[in-house]
Amino acid sequence: MSKVTIRHSINFIVFISLQVLIFNNIFFMGYINPYVYLMFLFLLPISKKNQNLLLLIAFLTGIVMDAFQNSMGLHTFACVLVMYLKSPILLSLIPQLKNKTQNNIVFSINEFGLPTTIIYTSILVFIHHFALFFIEAFQLDLGNILLRTIASGLVTSILLIILQFFNARNSLK
């Protein structure tokens, strides 16, 4: 196994356990439930060559989350959606990346700057949360879904941006 594979496997275990052991037990104000495991998907590179493998990894992540949450299919759907939309969103935020020939684009706060990081992170988080809450509650009113999406989405985005700061500091060393 290459170094990259090992690192991402460790990430997978760390973030899934963080989510299951700690964040699934947190409900600020009754219904804010941050989904920090998304960080694992964020840390995966964007790569044209391995794009199908990346989709399958997202699928697996979703299945594991669903098993722990008893919510068959919900997280799977949201994770695959996020993974699919990751590269189009990044490319539309930073068009000059299209011209680069490099195979793997690893998103990092050092390279792309804070404003882009905030926009990129929150767009993906809100897509994920909206898909999750919308499918979960077919019958509920849209107001409630939006409230949940915005409340949980804000908390998750802030946490993920902080985590990306730490990640950037570590990779500098």
Partner: peptide, 25 residues
């Protein structure tokens, strides 16, 4: 993959059937 995920959601909802992937395994 999305269709498969959606199928899981529908199946789990309408038949109240817990697939083998649930929190009792």
């Amino acid at each position: 993959l999305e269709v498969f995920a959606f199928f899981l959601i529908i199946q789990n909802n309408s038949f109240q059937k817990a697939a083998f992937i649930n929190s009792t395994n």
